[in-house]
Design a protein around this nucleic acid. Sequence first.
DNA 1: ACGAGACGGTCAAGTAGCTTGACCATATAG
DNA 2: CTATATGGTCAAGCTACTTGACCGTCTCGT
Lengths: 147, 147
Amino acid sequence: MENSEALALTAALLAAAGDLTRRIDDGVVARGFDGRPAYGFAFTRLVPDGATVTELANHLGVTKQAASQLVDELVRKGYVERRAHPGDARARLVVLTERGLACTRAAEAAAAEAVQEWVERLGEVEVRVLRDHLTRIAPCGPLRPAW
Amino acid sequence: MENSEALALTAALLAAAGDLTRRIDDGVVARGFDGRPAYGFAFTRLVPDGATVTELANHLGVTKQAASQLVDELVRKGYVERRAHPGDARARLVVLTERGLACTRAAEAAAAEAVQEWVERLGEVEVRVLRDHLTRIAPCGPLRPAW
DNA sequence: ACGAGACGGTCAAGTAGCTTGACCATATAG
DNA sequence: CTATATGGTCAAGCTACTTGACCGTCTCGT
């Protein structure tokens, strides 16, 4: 593989990821929720049983302070609640509220809608293959919100 | 395709893109250059004949002010120069210096190295298919440096 | 049992990289 | 030749992150 192809691959990845993220965010907003893209990725970590701030921080690839600030924001908007952690008095369990769950479903619907366009262009099988390859490459690395 | 799969695809895409970007940046730094990931993507637009600030802004998906600031940074570090634009006295052509070209090559080498690991895991053909699919999905959208 | 240190969380302050708004110089169209 | 659009920069402001300090709680070795 040529050198320039590797950079092109990276560019394509970023363009695709950015495009998809933007579409999902637009879709979520269109469904009446107010948020930024990071919310959706935080939510995926909060279902089904909630998570601690530190776990969320690792999931998103940011400091625990940043994650805590994000949770503040989510609490303020009514998407999550901080509860006592059963079995560790230091920790607090962040869990989705009813509205948070609704927002999660909206994000999923918006994502499905966005991916649908890809399915129409590549075919369902190819898209699935694409996803499988990607998950094999970057198993569960942090979802850094920025470069 | 299930709804949750669409979000998983997005997450995988972001994780892969973030991982690759970080590796490239690390590789560039290891080769003695000082920069942030956005540089590399700016450079790809500057070869072979340079570009104006506005073109760069569109390429990166930011305002022209932000692009101008980036160029300031690149000039300060000796990677690019601002020249007069032939045929438009308003515009200025941003071109790579010798050092900027060297940095570009370093980025390409680092990218190739990072992708090599993927090739070993998926096979060269699969990686190429991956890239082709991605470019078909998001042809040449802006490379937003953040969500 | 208890002290040392690790860990979860928050508060506070600082910063990088973007934005919007205003403005000038040049180009282009009517 | 005026009116408007375009390329570029300056200035100010903001958002989402960072580092550093700190408190309360857990855990482990002695």
